[in-house]
Design a protein around this nucleic acid. Structure first.
Lengths: 198, 198, 198, 198
DNA sequence: GATGAATGAGTCTTCATTCAT
DNA sequence: GATGAATGAAGACTCATTCAT
């Protein structure tokens, strides 16, 4: 779905409001004030509040789908994580919302959307983990589903902490550090030994 | 603060409601219905809704503080994580709420409470990481603050996924698997090599 | 009706509360807290809130009925006014309540009570005005009903202002000044002329 | 502040309700029913109940500020009083509310507003008393602050009684009588003597 | 005498939404 | 595209009162 300018304004405002004060803060009134119109005006651009929320959730997906070339498994994972960090840096409000699935528990419809998204990402990544493993880029003594959590758990936590800290540090730098650590601990043990000796 | 029976009932209900439908679902009416009284009755037991929320947040802390004996760094970390899994297994609703800091963004007061709690846990764990490192239980080529995320990121994610999946799997089992993987990954490289050869 | 000690405590508290924050502030809860018991305890001493209010209104009357000896018309008026000032000085909260008939407009029953009281006072005073006039103590060129307002209007206003000012001045002193002025103004013109020449 | 039609309707209703049953009777629900809308509709026209009350209080002031030409001290006082009587006759509900400062004791903000208003009126009148005195229109043997009470005490009382009596008499007529009496007793003694002889 | 627990009715206020203009 | 006015439903909370203990 392609959004009009006004619709984008609305989603931006919705994101900002939710980031700042939770979904409790995401009211039609607040959105309308944020973009400087009256409440009914919102309904010219979205059928109802739910559509706004859904479009908002959709935005979490965006950057991800655009991943370009990288073929190799580990590189794809790396690039996925980097694109996450960048996405959040570009729109810091996302940090408080993107991994906050609980915010949208109120409506089963939203939850479904989010679960689908999570699942999609997971299978996409799983594929890469498998490839990386075959290519000897990643150790083979860790079960696949655990691998996923081992990598994305820390990424999520870092983004969340960054959001809660009011974006105190440079996420791009900190993100690279984390990425390096991840790559290090997931490397095949032999490779790690070699690295160490250097 | 020691709670009366009714107060506990109320907190339990609040937890259940929030777990099921987000804070949007945590209304005084819903709580009162859940425990089978009328709305005003709630106010005999809590000054206002905020006190309920705060007590609820306090409950996240409980299990943690009770950690008993373990001295050694790595063992303390292990036991902390295990106690988390157990706490959540005993009261599955916690899984949807405990690590969902965003739910409480609506009120700065709650956020403050949560940040304090997170900070408290972090420094407690940091100490253990340091000890474990000195004792040669943990590799020394990963910065300390990253270490924390590397461990608790995955734990959080697992708990959250367990909650969102409707408690599909046995968290105690899955948790042990994760724990084993974490210990493996964080072991000093030399030790990992040895393990491998066996 | 003779009140028990507790009942008097309650009426005192009720008066204090009403004086401080209007009838909105006169709640059973506030009264009970003021005397250090729980709400239901109040109902041991008064059948319901209305009885408290009525007893409170009754208290406005008290001092007045106790007027002792004075015979002469003008002296009786003087003494009535003085006793009003004293009553209020003894229990300053009365100042914010006694002449505030509007406070009790909510219930026709209260209003009736107050109207009766006002009427009783008025006829009692009217009699004295008549006597004073006959005795040549008061000028005879002012209609009787106006006379009443001329005297008690200022008295009321002074008490009210004293109450609203937080009892800034010494009402006994200021009251005497007002009384003197009233007597002066109401004296027969001939007498006023004589006074002036002195 | 200039009010819209609806806002005026609301204030009128508020006045009516308060006049009839005290502030206890001034509820948003009652107001909304009085003008034939639902409760939330009120909030399109006033931010909250407090704003209604404040605007209501403001209305007490209105007529006063509009005083037109009169220069001479005594005439200004006369005209002020007359305008009060007229204001109240035009909107009889005011009689039960305008001088009932106690009604608004519940909120310090309202009380402040009222005190300011009273003070403003007082200083304005004080100036006129002084002028009247210099011009020999008023006796000079009464202290200024007492003068004020002597005049406005009776005016207030008359308005209040008129309100409580359900507007039984013709306030315009009765008011003129009172005014005449006031002018008479406040005239310089010499003048009073002359009048008498006539 | 007093309390803890509860309640029905009602307080002010906000919500998402609609409709005529 | 947008607004002013309105609404039904629901929000948190308070009130006077009752009842069993």
């Amino acid at each position: 779905m392609i959004l009009t300018k006004r619709q984008n304004e609305i989603i931006d405002a919705a994101l900002r409001l939710t980031a700042a004060g939770g979904i409790q803060n995401l009211t039609v009134k607040n959105v309308s004030q944020a973009i400087g119109v009256t409440e009914p005006a919102i309904y010219r651009h979205f059928k109802n509040k739910g559509e706004i929320v859904k479009e908002m959730i959709g935005r979490f997906d965006r950057a991800v789908s655009v991943v370009g070339a990288p073929v190799s498994g580990l590189d794809a994972i790396r690039s996925f994580i980097r694109s996450r960090f960048e996405q959040v840096c570009d729109n810091p409000d996302l940090a408080n919302v993107m991994f906050a699935e609980e915010l949208f528990m109120s409506d089963p419809e939203y939850q479904e959307l989010l679960l689908q998204m999570m699942h999609r990402h997971k299978t996409a990544m799983q594929k890469n983990f498998r490839r990386a493993r075959k290519a000897g880029e990643i150790r083979d003594d860790i079960a696949e589903d655990i691998l996923f959590r081992l990598v994305f758990g820390p990424v999520r936590l870092m983004v969340k902490q960054w959001g809660m800290s009011g974006h105190a540090v440079d996420l791009r730098v900190k993100g690279e550090e984390l990425l390096a650590a991840l790559v290090k601990i997931l490397a095949p043990v032999e490779q790690q030994t070699k690295e160490k000796k250097r």
